[in-house]
Nucleic acid binder design. Structure first.
Lengths: 181, 181
DNA sequence: GCATGCATGTAAGGAGTTACATGATTCA
DNA sequence: TGAATCATGTAACTCCTTACATGCATGC
């Protein structure tokens, strides 16, 4: 079967118990969003489609007068999740405006390139902070994979921040024009 | 001024001399595409818009009967490029299907998680190979920034591949269920 | 003569974000 | 009572990719 990218995040988020759209969204925001985001504009229409395809099942579960629909995987949905997890990953995409600016920095002063690197570094440091905050969540998960991924994210952002720091020094020490000579 | 993301790649690619759309596309494919891609479907319409906005200027430059239009930055275009380069970067996006699969791997066997990591590792190793092939291009550039970015890309993909290797060992050594205990 | 590369473009569609609209509940 | 949180959903829009269409030039 060939589902939309977002469909798999949803199936995955339902892997150990029912959840409503709102909870799926916040689970994503507190975990996968650093490498796989999803917005309400995708989630709700996708829940409907998955439901129609028989991969998930919704059950009304109002809290008082506030309505709420809880979705859970069907057998078919669990099968589809497993078969996707066993296929090799295809998508790896990076979109880094900082690197793009750095790439073109021959058109500006070395100080400007250094400022770009500084901004990049600060961004990655901030992500590290945020990930450390989330760590307790991941620790509480049913299996160890979310924690493994989270710790990977911390190391990854630290590596990136360190790279930025090194390059900042390089760029200020020997401006690019000299280095290329 | 507020231009589309693709607009800046184009302005940047014109930073040291005129180029036609086809050349911009192949320059992107041989350099920035690993962190900032662009397709013909974006490039040609954007060239028109930038031209209408007075940031670039097209000059017909047919090669025999094969038509060709060469674009170069106007003074305004060069100004806009510089002002963008001096603003801090905003976009950093990662979309990694492998990490997503790994995150949900509690639903499959440890061997499946290891297979995902192996595929990820192979991908990053292959990118390293490809980047090494491109290295001579970057070395030839007018300033040192493209080379700095390229070498960063090599280190980055090597780091990722190594991380995958480490995690592959971890996952096989102590399955996730135990680790979380 | 044919494949590959050079060169320009468009149409259709998929994917995703933002902003909006609506309304209940909870807690300070 | 008012802010934050829970909860569902849609409309408009941007961005981007893929596939197609066209045709000349070059080199084997």
């Amino acid at each position: 079967m060939d589902l939309s990218p977002t469909a798999y995040v949803i199936l995955g988020m339902l892997r150990d118990g029912p959840r409503c759209g709102y909870e799926i969204k916040s689970a994503v925001d507190n975990s996968t969003r650093f490498f796989w985001a999803a917005s309400y504009g995708q989630i709700y229409p996708e829940l409907r489609k998955l439901s129609e395809a028989g991969l998930i099942e919704g059950r009304p579960d109002a809290r008082g007068d506030r309505k709420r629909v809880e979705f859970k995987l069907t057998a078919a949905g669990r099968g589809e999740l497993g078969s996707w997890l066993r296929r090799p990953p295809e998508t790896f995409e990076l979109r880094d405006e900082g690197l793009l600016k750095l790439f073109f920095s021959g058109a500006v002063e070395p100080e400007d390139a250094a400022a770009t690197l500084r901004a990049m570094r600060e961004h990655h440091r901030a992500v590290v902070e945020r990930l450390r905050e989330i760590e307790p969540n991941a620790t509480a998960a049913g299996d160890g994979y979310p924690l493994l991924v989270l710790r990977g994210g911390i190391e990854y952002n630290e590596w990136l921040a360190d790279w930025c720091e090194r390059m900042e020094r390089d760029v200020l020490a020997e401006p690019a024009e000299e280095r290329s000579a």
